[in-house]
Nucleic acid binder design. Structure first.
Lengths: 146, 146
DNA sequence: TATTGTTATACTCTATAACTATA
DNA sequence: TATAGTTATAGAGTATAACAATA
């Protein structure tokens, strides 16, 4: 039993809708590419340390939008895997200073390398003009989402 | 103690790297927009039912890349919240047919509406030419990631 | 007394293994 | 005997509450 009064959709969805679908689909695929089996939240901690240098557990918890006890456990795991180094703050004995170990730095570099490669393989078939459009679109998007 | 031999980076990163950063950042923001507090995996189930119509638990498990017992629990929760309807297969008594309730359909519609609105607000300040570039970029990206 | 971080404990989501019902 | 789904149980990850150490 069909519904003959319902017309087949011919109009293109709005730009925001098209972007939502394609951006979320692309990011899902990108996130699958990784240097190992660390969950996304743990990877995100390594990434923050890679980008911003040494941070305290409290700063990491706030930045990653998790509670301090959750960050404690995440850091314990990452330290056990050898991805982190831990030091005491030079002047404030309460604080702990977390930084990436060489292995942690390599993990994040390798993950980014793999994600870039995944994308690059898909961009390889494009023309110069198509790449230019993607480059311009990236700049536009980066501007408006900040 | 600085490293004076290390030059400040002046060159633009490659296109794939720029896209990776901006697409992942945008998708993270988009995923924050939702009609409620359902976790991403549950939302994804509603979305699959919205797009593909009625599906069995087994089909949903495969499509969502989770194991059948996990899907059973997800469906139990979503059914308890009133987002699903459950029926027995007309010819195969073993199978269960899952479909969206009106509330489930509204949940997914509202989530998509909010995400589109979030994006739309950010696209509002763009020129016609900038929108055209985003539209072309979306088509290009959609082609290459499929 | 306030702040930083950890430990204790519970809840959620997912997994593997074992079980029930139907084909 | 094989298939679809559920129940039993365990393992991650995150949360709140209580605690220890330092400012």
């Amino acid at each position: 039993m069909t519904t003959p009064t319902q017309p087949i959709r011919r109009t293109e969805p709005p730009l925001a809708t098209r972007l939502r679908i394609t951006l979320l689909r692309t990011s899902r695929r990108l996130r699958n590419e990784s240097a190992g089996t660390l969950p996304e939240g743990h990877l995100s901690v390594l990434s923050a340390l890679f980008t911003h240098g040494a941070l305290s557990p409290g700063e990491l918890a706030e930045r990653e939008h998790v509670r301090p006890p959750s960050m404690t456990r995440t850091l314990q795991h990452l330290e056990g895997e050898g991805y982190l180094e831990r030091a005491t703050h030079p002047t404030d004995g309460r604080q702990v200073v977390i930084s990436l170990s060489p292995a942690g730095e390599e993990y994040i570099r390798e993950t980014r390398r793999r994600r870039d490669q995944w994308l690059q393989r898909r961009l390889a078939s494009l023309t110069r003009d198509q790449r230019a459009i993607l480059a311009q679109a990236e700049s536009i998007l980066r501007e408006v989402i900040d």
